[in-house]
Structures are given as C-alpha cells and as structure tokens.
Amino acid sequence: MDGVEVTRRPVSDTLREVLVRHLRRVPADVDWTTVTLPDLGLDSMVAIELVLDLEDTFGAQFPEDALVRETFETFQSLEAVVKWMVDGS
C-alpha cells in the first residue's frame, strides 16, 4: 500500500450497517442499547442470511456454538460474538 495506513473501522459500526441491510424495521433514531433485534424484524430466515453476510464482511467464520437465540436477541449480544469472531478472543 506504499506507506498508506489502513484504519480499521470499529466492529460496532460495521455491524450496524450489516444489520440495517437485513432488518425490516429500523427507524432512523433506533436506540441499539434498548431495542431487541426481533423487534426490528429479525427472524430465523433473516438470521441465516445475516450470519452469511457477517462471515463475508468480517472474513471470519461465525462460531457454531453461538448459533443460538440469545446471540441474536440484542445488538450487544451479537456484537460480543462478532468481536470474538474477528479478534479471536
């Protein structure tokens, strides 16, 4: 890259963008700290598409043991898994 430093966007910002692409009911003023993802339109079919998109976006495999309802309940629970997925910790 000839000395150009690439800055990595925070996982949370990228995750929000991916979620908005998949969820049907995301108001512009959504409070990600209080809303549940099912309230925004996440169902089992959307979750499958979301996992595939997350794997493509972050270039890492979604942990099989995290494929449970609790992971997809809130932004924070999903973010924790994605951060682990990306950072490996």
Rank of each mutant, 00 (worst) to 15 (best):
G41C: 04
D29W: 08
E64I: 06
A60R: 15
G88A: 05
G59M: 09
K83M: 04
R8H: 10
A28P: 03
V35H: 11
E55L: 12
R25K: 07
R24D: 11
E49F: 02
V6F: 06
W84G: 00
V20P: 03
A28Y: 04
V81M: 08
A28E: 14
T74P: 10
D43G: 00
V81R: 12
V86W: 12
V6E: 11
L78D: 02
P63M: 09
D43I: 03
R9C: 01
W32K: 09
D31V: 09
D13W: 13
T33R: 15
D53F: 01
L19P: 04
L37E: 08
A28F: 04
D29R: 13
L42S: 03
V18A: 12
M1A: 09
V30G: 08
M45V: 07
E79H: 14
D29V: 05
F62M: 07
W32M: 08
R21N: 08
E79A: 13
D53P: 01
D2F: 08
R25C: 02
E79K: 10
M85G: 01
R21D: 15
D87W: 05
E5R: 14
D31E: 12
S12G: 04
F75Q: 07
D29M: 07
D43M: 02
P38W: 13
L15Y: 09
E55Y: 12
F62N: 08
L50I: 01
E70A: 13
I48S: 04
T57Q: 15
D43L: 04
F62G: 09
T14Y: 06
Q76M: 08
T74A: 10
T34S: 15
E49H: 10
V20T: 14
D87H: 09
V68D: 04
T57H: 12
R8Q: 13
T33G: 12
S77N: 15
R8S: 06
L19K: 04
L78I: 10
